[in-house]
Amino acid sequence: MEVHLSDAERVFIVHGVQEGIRNDGRGASDYRPIRVETGVLSTTLGSARVRLASTDVLVGVKAEIDEIDCKQTEKKGRIRFFVDCSANATPLFAGKGGEEMAEFVSTALTDAYSNSMALDLSKLVVSTTKAWTVFVDVVVLECGGNLTDAAALGAKAALADARLANVRIKASDSEKSEIELTDDAYFDSWQLDVTAAPLLVTVNKIGWSNVVDASLQEEVCTKSALVVGVASSPAKGDLVTLVRQTGRGSLEPDSVDEMIALGVRAGNSLNRELDRILVDIGRTQMNRNELVSAAGFLSS
């Protein structure tokens, strides 16, 4: 939605951030309450819904078997991110209005994941010429600030929830071998390992202070921001997979160091919390041995 602020409101927000108390009482490094659900859509291989205060994103994972790119030296599958800012969130996103924002978030996700540590894409290979292409589709249903972080949380949760069917290669008479998908999509399947998948943290510079998880009003007061992709792998420790500056202002090098440090701390906390939630969900689903298919819109 169009967020307008008077000069006085802007000054109030900036002074507050600099004093260490934001408009809703949070400190600079506090996130608003986050709610994560997985397994919410039945037409997808994996899905998740993330609510960060009033920001609401729904992520679905689908996969198709495609030809492997012959030009690549090592055989691996692909992962594609697509973000759609639905007009439900604000009339400004109607038609082509949301394309700029969507483009930004999907590029950030693509670049954050485009390293060998994030996901083992070689596991997606099914035969000498074919591999899975995994599509991660994010729909923004409501926008309350900090879309990027919410989208990244949703993407990681949905990928963790995704089950790819096991594939058997049948030798056939023609030259090409036939791919046969298993009939039992739930039990005869495997899951991706997302422990080293990155999360995105947007660090906003407001006045001379840095904050994470900006609300809509705080985003209007931001001169410049840094999006940091943070992953933690058991082997290599903390990794930064993306640093991207956004906004019209410029940043001093010292600022950048501070902002990256704050982003990494926040990213590690987010990763730890998300891993804990995913483990809880996984354990409960195994006990109940059934698929949860309600989108949660009916209950909450």
């Binding site: 400190g27 490094s29 506090d30 996130y31 309450p33 986050i34 709610r35 994560v36 659900e37 997985t38 701390r265 926040a266 906390s269 987010l270 919390e273 998300l274 804990r276 939630i277 809880d280 969900i281 409960t284 949660g296 209950s299 909450s300």
Partner: peptide, 14 residues
């Protein structure tokens, strides 16, 4: 630094 995440399973259904 405070990050709090919940999922529907641990929320008491009010």
């Amino acid at each position: 630094m405070s990050v709090e995440m919940t999922c529907p399973l641990d929320a008491t259904t009010a």
